[in-house]
Design a protein around this nucleic acid. Structure first.
Lengths: 198, 198
DNA sequence: CAAATTAGATAGGACTCCTATTCTTTAACC
DNA sequence: GGTTAAAGAATAGGAGTCCTATCTAATTTG
C-alpha cells in the first residue's frame, strides 16, 4: 500500500454510521410528526400500514413493523380508543380480527402523508442518476440484511422467486412477464413470493 | 388487476420506502442485541456514545441521540443502576454532570461491537464501488436531511465549514489540509464545525 | 374426536419519551 | 456587588412501547 494515499477508512463502517445517523433522524422526525397529530410513531406506522393492506392481519402487521404481536394489539387498542380504527372478529375465521380505518383515521393518513413530503423532497434533491443508483444499492442491501436475519420481511424483486436475471439478459419478472430495469425494481410488490429456502 | 406496464414508478418514493424498511430492521435488530446483554436500545446507544465522547455532557448526548434531555437522564439512571456508568458533578462547573463507563460498561461496549459485525458484513457484501457510491449518496442525503431539519446533528465533511470543494478541483479539508476523495469523507469527524447559517 | 396448531388478547414490568417544572449554579448587566 | 437571566440537569407525571409468558378460543390434523 502506498503510504501517500489518505486512508480511505473502513467504508462499510462509515455506511453503517451514516445509516445510524439517518435512522435516528427519521425516528425523531416520525416522533414529531406523530405527536403533532396526537399519535405515537408506532400508532402512525400502524395506521399507514393498515391503510395499505387489503386485509390486515395482526400477526402479519407485527412482522411487517418488526415488533411483537402483543405490541401491535396494544397499539391497535390505542388507535381504537382514539377512534381511528374499528376492530371486529372475522366471520370466516373467528380467531381472526379484522380492522378498518374510520374516516378520522383515513384523514390522518392523508395529513401525515403530506407531512412526509419534506422527507421525500430531501431524497428527490439527490441527482437523478444517483437516485437510481442508491435505490439499486439499497435493494441489494435489503437482500443482504434479509439473509443475515437483520430484517424479517422484504417484498423486493431481488428477494422474490419470480425475479429472473440470467447472465447477460436483462432482469425480468417471471410472473408479470415484464422487464425490470433498475428503476422499475419494486420495494414492496403485492405479488411478491419469497425465495424458497430449500 | 395488476398493471402490466413497467412504470419506473416514483424513485424517491421507493428510496424512502427502502430506507424505512431498513430502519425498521435496524431498530428490531438493535432491540434484540440490546436485550441479549440486558439493556434497552437507548441504553445501548447511550453507552456507546458515552464511550466515544471525550467529555460527555447530558444535553449534547440528547441532541446526538435525537431525544429529549430528560430521556437521557432517565436512561443514564438505568445504566447507573445496572452498574455500567458512574455519574458525578463536574468540579469546574457544578451544574454539569460528568460520567464514565465502569469496567462492565466498557466490556458491554466491546461485546456489542462484536455483535454488530453481522450488520457491517451485510454492508461489506456490497460490491466495492457500490460501497463508495452508497456512502457518497448517504452523505449527501444527510446534508439534505439536515437542511430540511429532519436530523439535528451531523459531523460529516459535507456539512462542515472546512469542506473545500471548488469546481474542478478535488475536495479538500481546509483544516487538516488533506485531500478528500469520496472514500475519505467522514461521517463523524471530531474536528467538524458546522456551516454558518449566515 | 383428541391433540396440535394458529390467532389474538391479557398480564406484568421495565423503559421510552414527552412537556412542564424545579433546583442549582454560573453568567450578565446596570 | 447584587440582581436578574440563562444554562444544566433532575424530577414529576403520564401515555405508550415492547418484551416474555400465558391464556382462551377456534381451526386443523391424525
Amino acid at each position: 500500500m502506498t503510504s501517500a494515499n489518505p486512508s480511505p477508512g473502513d467504508v462499510p463502517e462509515k455506511i453503517v454510521a451514516a445509516l445510524d445517523r439517518i435512522a435516528r433522524g427519521l425516528r425523531s422526525h416520525r416522533q414529531s410528526v406523530a405527536s403533532r397529530v396526537g399519535l405515537t410513531p408506532l400508532q402512525l406506522e400502524l395506521l399507514q400500514t393498515i391503510d395499505e393492506s387489503p386485509r390486515p392481519v395482526i400477526g402479519l402487521l407485527a412482522k411487517e413493523l418488526e415488533v411483537s404481536q402483543p405490541t401491535v394489539s396494544d397499539s391497535l387498542l390505542a388507535l381504537e380508543r382514539k377512534g381511528h380504527v374499528v376492530r371486529r372478529r372475522s366471520d370466516t375465521d373467528r380467531r381472526r380480527t379484522t380492522m378498518e380505518l374510520t374516516d378520522s383515521g383515513r384523514e390522518l393518513v392523508g395529513e401525515v402523508r403530506r407531512a412526509g413530503e419534506i422527507l421525500r423532497s430531501s431524497v428527490a434533491a439527490l441527482a437523478g442518476p444517483d437516485q437510481e443508483a442508491v435505490l439499486d444499492i439499497l435493494l441489494s442491501l435489503i437482500g443482504n440484511l434479509l439473509d443475515a436475519g437483520i430484517i424479517q420481511v422484504a417484498r423486493t424483486c431481488r428477494t422474490c422467486r419470480f425475479y429472473d436475471h440470467r447472465d447477460g439478459l436483462d432482469a425480468r419478472c417471471a410472473l408479470l412477464q415484464i422487464p425490470l430495469p433498475p428503476a422499475a425494481l419494486r420495494v414492496d410488490c403485492p405479488e411478491h413470493e419469497p425465495l424458497l429456502a430449500s
